[in-house]
């Protein structure tokens, strides 16, 4: 099987990889690029654990083939912080104890960032619908929603 050569940007760095035709972006991230922060909970687009941003758009990386990444800019959970400074979504997740096992957390943080980039002041209902594609089996979502709203407030410059 011949491999496809792909050039794209991952977390701000130009990246090249070779992938099989059946490899997803998630496979490439996890197996070839060592970026295991994106998780596979289902492989079918139903859990959101593999959420990444592709050209700023929220995507389930398990549903996108590696070969489709050519020329795109991908942001994964590893690229959300600014160096060692946590993004407000990350620090508010910690402050509000919005994770238990933490397996859904990378996907939820990426999805929350996408939400707040698009809508800086979501209502609770808007936020809950936006995040409905990200399953969390541990928390019951309550503290996640608290963290989302606190991060929104912080990003709007309101004191948390």
């Amino acid at each position: 099987m011949s491999k496809t050569h792909v050039t794209c940007t991952v977390n701000g760095e130009e990246t090249e990889f070779l992938c099989d035709s059946n490899q997803t972006v998630l496979d490439v991230l996890r197996e070839d690029l060592g970026l295991t922060g994106s998780k596979e909970g289902c492989g079918s687009g139903d859990c959101g654990a593999c959420s990444v941003l592709v050209d700023g758009r929220l995507v389930c990386s398990c549903l996108m083939f590696g070969s489709e990444a050519e020329g795109t800019s991908i942001t994964t959970i590893e690229g959300i912080a600014d160096g060692e400074n946590l993004h407000p979504v990350q620090s508010q997740f910690l402050k509000h104890a919005a994770l238990q096992c933490g397996f859904c957390t990378p996907g939820l943080i990426v999805a929350t960032k996408a939400l707040l980039d698009a809508n800086p002041s979501p209502t609770d209902e808007e936020a809950r619908y936006w995040l409905a594609g990200n399953l969390c089996r541990c928390t019951g979502y309550d503290k996640i929603m608290n963290a989302v709203h606190a991060a929104a407030a912080e990003l709007r410059g309101e004191s948390a």
Binding site: T36, K39, I77, Q90, L94, L99, G102, P106
Partner: peptide
């Protein structure tokens, strides 16, 4: 009290190593 959990930063940065990692 409610301190930040010690394994928290790893988990919000995608660094925590789960079984499949």
């Amino acid at each position: 009290t409610r301190p930040v959990r010690p394994d928290g930063v790893d988990k919000v940065m995608g660094r925590a190593q789960f079984g499949g990692d």
